[in-house]
Computed example of a mutant assay.
Amino acid sequence: MSRRRRRLEDPRAAIEAKRRRPGLPAEPPRPDGSPAAVEAALGAVAALFPRRLFGDALPPLLLRHQLYSLVPDRTAVDRHLERLRAEGRLRLLHLGLGPDALGVVSARLYREKALAAVAGSPREPLVRRFLEVAVMARPELSYGERDMRDMGFGDSDVTQLVAVGLLTVRDVGSWWVAVPGVGRFVRALLRGRRALLSLFRRARLRQLPQGALGGGKTPPGAALGVPFLLHDLLGEGRLQSIPTPAGPLLRLAEP
């Protein structure tokens, strides 16, 4: 069986593989919307996640809209991610960044990091049961009080799961599935967005050559890395990429 065939049959490899660090989004995307294109985008963005920044306590996290910067066919991206979620290979997460800003994470790595966070503690059996009965078996973004009862988790269990960061409060009697320690990632993302957007607001005509952002010192606050943040801002539509003979020109989108 060829290497290409194996990659298509095991999409987890795309998000978990150790790859050479890709460059800025100037690299030509594969906009055909095929499963291979989506999986290549998953691998490229996941490889940019700075694991050392979080002491390797978090699994590689990315945002769904970051993939849109590489595969413009958003419907194809969403459809393939939904397939991987239904198969239990990926987990989609609500990160509190807006209703459409969903996090994407390898289900296997999510489980590994969640167990590592409670290894040897009295809460480990509860976390292990929650991962198997709920997270790995039911791909919903959130669970209600009735869902938790049906899965065998009482009020005290929910309290402990919130304490370890596997659940966050969505509403009264409803909880989002979360990643322990994800707040650090969200704070770093928001700081990084502000840092890069500030550069564009100060630039002449509110635009910069993309190549000018690829080298030199990382702007203060952009600890997640300029390439990772550019995929975020381009995919969300806060920046626009304009092709020029000298390379892509990035322009701040009109408010």
Rank of each mutant, 00 (worst) to 15 (best):
132 E>Y: 07
106 S>F: 04
58 L>V: 03
103 G>F: 03
155 D>L: 12
118 V>H: 01
45 V>Y: 02
128 R>A: 15
110 Y>M: 10
84 L>N: 01
54 F>W: 01
162 V>A: 11
162 V>E: 15
167 L>Y: 08
73 D>A: 15
173 G>C: 07
180 P>T: 00
185 F>A: 05
181 G>T: 00
168 T>V: 12
53 L>C: 02
168 T>P: 04
58 L>M: 03
140 E>Q: 13
149 R>D: 10
67 L>Q: 10
154 G>D: 13
107 A>R: 02
158 V>H: 09
66 Q>G: 10
92 L>I: 05
166 L>A: 05
121 S>W: 01
85 R>Q: 10
147 D>Y: 02
113 K>P: 07
44 A>T: 14
144 G>F: 06
139 P>D: 12
91 R>C: 09
128 R>K: 12
80 H>C: 04
130 F>P: 06
155 D>H: 11
159 T>G: 14
78 D>R: 06
68 Y>F: 15
178 A>H: 00
177 V>R: 01
100 D>W: 13
155 D>F: 10
41 A>G: 13
166 L>M: 13
102 L>S: 12
100 D>N: 15
50 P>L: 00
130 F>K: 03
60 P>G: 11
55 G>R: 00
59 P>G: 11
151 M>H: 07
117 A>V: 07
160 Q>R: 04
79 R>N: 09
93 L>P: 07
62 L>W: 11
159 T>Q: 14
111 R>D: 14
140 E>I: 04
159 T>N: 11
153 F>P: 03
70 L>W: 09
175 W>D: 00
131 L>A: 08
127 V>F: 05
107 A>C: 08
145 E>G: 09
148 M>N: 01
108 R>M: 10
170 R>F: 11
138 R>N: 12
58 L>Q: 01
45 V>P: 02
145 E>K: 11
124 E>M: 06
171 D>E: 14
128 R>V: 03
167 L>C: 06
133 V>A: 10
166 L>W: 03
73 D>F: 10
127 V>H: 04
51 R>Y: 02
137 A>L: 11
146 R>F: 05
100 D>T: 15
103 G>I: 00
160 Q>E: 14
131 L>N: 06
164 V>H: 02
137 A>E: 13
140 E>W: 12
153 F>V: 02
45 V>M: 04
121 S>C: 02
117 A>N: 05
132 E>C: 07
153 F>D: 03
166 L>H: 05
110 Y>F: 14
143 Y>H: 14
94 H>M: 12
184 R>G: 15
129 R>P: 08
110 Y>H: 15
